[in-house]
Nucleic acid binder design. Structure first.
Lengths: 242, 242
DNA sequence: CGAACTTTTGATCGCAGTCAAGATACGTGG
DNA sequence: CCACGTATCTTGACTGCGATCAAAAGTTCG
């Protein structure tokens, strides 16, 4: 990749120049000076699938941007039942401001790369830049909308509607260019069947049965368990309840 | 109630002086001058139970503080199934910034009184006062936490755990002084059985049966359908899954 | 006191959960 | 490259929780 040197990237840290978080993420709120200051304390990590990013009730002392991969946010009941309460894709901001403790677990669902900052850096920058806080508010509102959308799915949809809704959501996130007119997409599921079950409030077996049913009915194709081709987005949409 | 005239209330609009929203709500972010400016465009309303505040896909052109009563936020599926995705108590802020359309219905669950502002006033004030936006971010984060907590309830709890969780949540909101040690509280349910069902992703009948069971088992008492006395908060907590 | 509504209770049904094998994909070392 | 072991996923048989349908009891108005 060539490093652009036009007026817009002048003075911007090299690492940030091609970073999606600068375009669509929270870093877009910062001017070159602020980016330089922040990037001095930032570092990039790559994380293996299954690795825990934030433990339940652990002290949070850093925030991150998701650069690639999918992070799942989970909450658990004392007897081991689990529920995924959110999925974060690039270039989402990861971390819960203004709280020392998080009651949420964050875990890499796929391989994940992060750009990570000390808690203090971000919080200082937030005090200096109202625009940064504004972006954070917008992301939080987006997450709230998504959470409420899933509450409808969890509370009122049938198993097959849940699975259809899930596939639709993944299709739209993995390939944001998903044109409803195109009517066909293909992607790798970022989640195992167990994760999908924890996301939809179902069991592994029910998820598997529903996927099999959609396959035999020609709505989707599945290769190697993970790779899904949606043959008809409109049929999928019709099955999602909505 | 006597009107305080000390240094802190000097220059504050009369209506705001004893207003909860100024203490615990978003108006706490504003200085006296800003309060005066905002209060010029504000007006108070009282709304009957069942009245709709924001219609689905309607244009939103005002924001409000909830001064008393309970507002339910609902989302519906095309075939009529409904899910309550949030409850707002005083002094919550009501309205979805930065969006022209709301995909959510807001409806008075009980009698509700509101302090309401034109959309433009709030948005102008938000541009002038980062502190206001900060409060809004904090409330939004609180709502996100609550939504995620309910996702666990909806996705992974049994009917009886759901009802116990609901009673616990109401007890804590109606009477914030609910001391877990006291082990006993009493309140009026702000929701009908139908609303409770829509909140918990259950049917009316299941909600009723679970309440009956808790009553016969001595965990709660019920008078006139609406008034509930929790005999043992700790027993209720144990039944809520958590 | 009577009408309309809300809640409770009862009987039955069906969807998704549970328990149990089998099948398929994947990594590892021979 | 293949045999093996482990993970993950699928399929089958059965169960049970909560939904559905129906009716009775209680509550709140006028």
């Amino acid at each position: 990749m060539t490093v652009r040197q036009d007026v817009h990237s002048a003075g911007i840290p090299v690492l940030c120049q091609s970073c999606e978080a600068r375009h669509r993420g929270v870093c877009g709120a910062l001017d070159p000076d602020q980016l330089v200051a922040l990037s001095k304390t930032s570092s990039r990590y790559t994380i293996e699938p299954g690795a825990e990013l934030i433990g339940d009730a652990e002290t949070v002392n850093s925030y991150s941007n998701v650069l690639s991969g999918v992070v799942k946010l989970t909450k658990g009941l004392s007897d081991g039942r689990q529920q995924i309460v959110g999925l974060q894709f690039a270039p989402d901001f990861l971390g819960r401001p203004f709280k020392v403790e998080s009651e949420i677990n964050a875990e890499a669902a796929t391989a994940v790369s992060l750009c990570s900052f000390p808690k203090a850096s971000i919080e200082r920058m937030m005090r200096e830049s109202p625009e940064l806080e504004h972006r954070l508010l917008k992301q939080t509102l987006k997450e709230l909308d998504e959470a409420r959308e899933w509450m409808v799915t969890l509370g009122r949809k049938t198993a097959s509607e849940k699975v259809a809704s899930f596939l639709l959501m993944i299709a739209r996130n993995i390939d944001p260019a998903t044109d409803p007119a195109t009517n066909s997409t293909s992607f790798d599921l970022p989640l195992t069947r167990a994760d999908i079950a924890d996301f939809l409030g179902l069991t592994i077996e029910t998820v598997s049965r529903q996927l099999t049913r959609m396959r035999t009915e020609g709505v989707i194709r599945i290769e190697n368990n993970r790779h899904v081709t949606v043959e008809s987005l409109s049929r999928l949409e019709r099955r999602s309840g909505a």
